[in-house]
Amino acid sequence: MSPDVLRKTSLVTLSILAVLSLVSAVAFMTWGARGSWSFVLSFRGTRLAALIIVAYAISVSTVLFQTITGNRILTPSIMGFDALYVLLQTVLVFTLGAAATSAIDPRLMFIVEVAAMVGFSLLLFRFLFSGHAQNIHLLVLVGIVLGVLFRSLSGFLQRIINPDDFVVLQDRLFASFNITDGTLVGVSAVLVAGVSVFIWRMRDTFDVLALGRDMAISLGLDYQAATTRILILVAILISVSTALVGPVTFFGLLVANLAYLIIPASRHRYTLPAAVLISVLCLVGGQTILERLFAFDTALSIIIEFAGGLFFILFLLKGRNR
């Protein structure tokens, strides 16, 4: 395909995705609404905003993470980043106690958590990706097992926490696609907007980074600084999404690879928006259909896990994991 055709097909695909996402958002807001419109709109509006923020955070963080790691099978959640977030929360409540934790301004709290998360994920990343010839299967497996370790540690701490604190913690950790907490959504929106500014300013470096470390350096990029910055952004996005809906292991993998599949040009200016739109479409559309058509209100994450796992196995079987 010539560059012109490539651009055109990509743009057409993006527009179709945009229209579909819009349709699903409208359906989400209006389908089956009963009672006063002002209540329905504000209630559903908060949830819609949360879903869109999550969709955005997961897809952008996954695509960028895959760009700096140079592969299409690793995602931040597979590497155990969201389990890490849960663990940090648990440790916080465990050490400070629920009373102290609740006394702190939730916004400050959130920022502390995000900061801890950024620190830990940088360490983890440096540790895993430094030196040695990297074997991709080894990394994935290490990530998955780290996830198990983080989850087991959280589970363990949650068992020895005193029961009152546990109730508080469970409240904070129990999350689904039914968020109605306006403040949390507000804080998340601000954070995501801030992150997006940085992403926008770095937009030209993504395609260069995708060429790999050696190529990027020889093209004059400060590789170390660029990857660190991206990793920080990824950690923030993961924190936001995990705080809102809890861990969703395979969603990022699914949407990022769908985006690579349907967008012929492998330029971030097309793949990033495509991944975002696909993920909005899946979350909002999927939630609408499940809720209105089948009356399964919290089953979406289960279905995503199933589809994601299937996709992952097929991906491995086809051996296209480099």
Partner: peptide
Amino acid sequence: RAIPLRSILMVPLVGIMLGGMISAVTTF
């Protein structure tokens, strides 16, 4: 048996994913 190039690490990877899928069905 169907995996074309049997990497040692791919084996537990596939197993864990398969387990995840089965437990997703169970949870559902």
